[in-house]
Design a protein around this nucleic acid. Structure first.
Lengths: 119, 119
DNA sequence: GCCTATAGTATCGAAAAGGATACCGTCATG
DNA sequence: CATGACGGTATCCTTTTCGATACTATAGGC
């Protein structure tokens, strides 16, 4: 489990709203989870979908999502390296929330074009 | 509108998922929005519900929520000062999401007791 | 040798988010 | 005068998040 985050509430021992947000509020995480909803993806495939994210940031966020049990990372003993990411059951249970966030953003925010369709 | 946040995505012009998260992911915001779902509240009433938050942080988050159009702040010309906060229509449209976040947290996170009932 | 593929890691720094503490203003009351 | 109610503001600091850049390892092709 990741170290306590700046945003982790210490008020009422884990307010569920804040606690849930703490799992998905890192930059790029929402999009990562959204992409993985369509199925397993490899590192570079995810990255190609988000050209502006640096390798470092993508790796970091993926590792955090994994540590929080939202995604599964499978490393294949191959060369070149082959690593696949997919939503865990726990991560899948977040789908309604991700979709609701997306719908709300599209309906309420200007300059919020739909996320590009799955490749 | 608040200055661009660290978390505001600049990848695909405003990915809706991330953009929506950017509005609610500040510390305490989720709880503030949850409390206001029950109706209008004054500054100190909110604060009493979250003893660990400093005045400064509470003010700051409330101001951001207001700037993003999620809550309404009404100042009454009285002494002692009287300021009331309530959800805007836009903020109200986020209720399903807030409730879903809470439900998910309660169902999936250990040490996630329900938020105390409304006063 | 160089380059490509793949998925990183290491290091350092910039920017943002959050917090601690003291102080402020108006009015009323003892 | 002091204290309390109320809702802040000012200032400075700490911590966290995010980003930039260079480098790594294995294998294969030119």
């Amino acid at each position: 489990m990741r170290r306590a985050r700046h945003k982790t509430p210490n008020c009422l021992p884990g307010c569920p709203v804040e606690s849930t947000l703490a799992l998905i509020d890192g930059k790029w995480k929402g999009i990562i989870l959204y992409f993985l909803m369509d199925g397993t993806m490899r590192f570079n495939a995810i990255r190609k979908r988000m050209p502006q994210v640096t390798q470092r940031m993508l790796t970091n966020q993926l590792r955090e999502l994994e540590a929080d049990g939202l995604i599964i990372r499978v490393v294949y003993p191959e060369v070149p390296p082959r690593v696949e990411y997919s939503l865990s059951a726990r991560g899948r249970s977040l789908e309604p929330i991700i979709l609701a966030l997306k719908a709300w953003g599209e309906a309420n925010l200007r300059n919020a074009p739909p996320v590009e369709a799955a490749a």
